[in-house]
Design a protein around this nucleic acid. Structure first.
Length: 269
DNA sequence: TATCCAATAT
DNA sequence: TATATTGGAT
């Protein structure tokens, strides 16, 4: 039961090793990518941060590759973004793209990280960690580290945590108003979408010893991002299993199926 | 300098 | 609405 979030996830064997090239030799050839400048030569951590769709386009998406690669805004604030770790420079593709700064050479361009989709599985892990730590000790960096999810950034977690705290606050408000049952919009943080709310640690967290929490292993296994795309082996989305959405193409890669939206059954009034 | 966090932007 | 980004505070 505690491990339900693992259901449907690829097995370890199913995952493509990061050391393995993510693009076919044919594609590499087509884009003029030599072994010296492929992903395998990058810092693997950096590679894990990439949107797989950027580098593993399905054949039918190849045409939009260059758009997706550089559809982010110009790198006007890149030094800051780099510092915050949410963009990186690439010299990988010379697509002829011309950005706002008139840079035609395709070098040292900032590539915007695709936005993360918090799947129920991912959120479950998030909540597990918070329960493990206790809400008072749950800060973005710690949560990120304990979640042990490849590619997940502190900013991702911070943003989600902010929202989660707002949710908790709202729930507190409701309970203090005498609502015995939370409204259905708590489904937002409903892990499985069927009412098994992941309640905040709050009172339990202070007494809870880590060993007593069996929802997280003490040495958490690295968790790949949930797969939401084509199965491994194809050149579609999902080699790294990054559940990312391009802001330029909302809903791309069938993200709806993994996102909260399908669980969001908000009732007003 | 790194991080947190609330406000704000997208 | 969900998530990213910003900027002040620590």
């Amino acid at each position: 039961m505690e491990d339900q979030w693992e259901m449907g996830l690829p097995s370890f064997e199913d995952l493509t090793p990061l050391s393995q090239s993510l693009i076919s030799p044919e594609l590499a050839l087509a884009f003029g990518i030599t072994p010296d400048n492929t992903r395998a030569q990058f810092d693997l951590n950096r590679a894990m941060h990439d949107n797989c769709s950027t580098f593993c386009p399905s054949e039918e998406n190849i045409e939009s590759l260059s758009l997706r690669l550089f559809s982010g805004r110009s790198d006007y604030d890149c030094s800051n973004r780099m510092k915050r770790g949410d963009c990186f420079m690439t010299d990988e593709v010379n697509s002829g793209y011309k950005d706002d700064n008139g840079d035609e050479n395709g070098l040292n361009r900032a590539v915007k990280r695709p936005r993360l989709v918090w799947t129920p599985q991912l959120h479950k892990r998030f909540v597990d960690v918070i329960e493990h730590l206790g809400i008072d000790k749950a800060v973005p960096k710690t949560i990120m580290e304990m979640m042990n999810v490849e590619g997940l950034t502190r900013e991702n977690v911070a943003s989600h945590l902010q929202k989660y705290r707002l949710y908790l606050k709202r729930m507190e408000g409701l309970s203090s108003e005498g609502h015995s049952t939370p409204r259905r919009d708590s489904a937002m943080f409903d892990c499985d979408g069927f009412g098994s709310m992941s309640m905040p640690p709050q009172s339990q967290s202070s007494q809870q010893q880590p060993q007593q929490c069996n929802s997280l292993p003490l040495m958490p296994m690295p968790m790949p991002m949930p797969m939401v795309g084509p199965p491994p082996g194809s050149y579609g989305f999902g080699h790294l299993g990054l559940p990312v959405a391009s802001s330029a193409t909302p809903g791309y890669c069938g993200l709806e199926s993994g996102a909260y939206n399908m669980f969001w059954n908000r009732q007003r009034g």
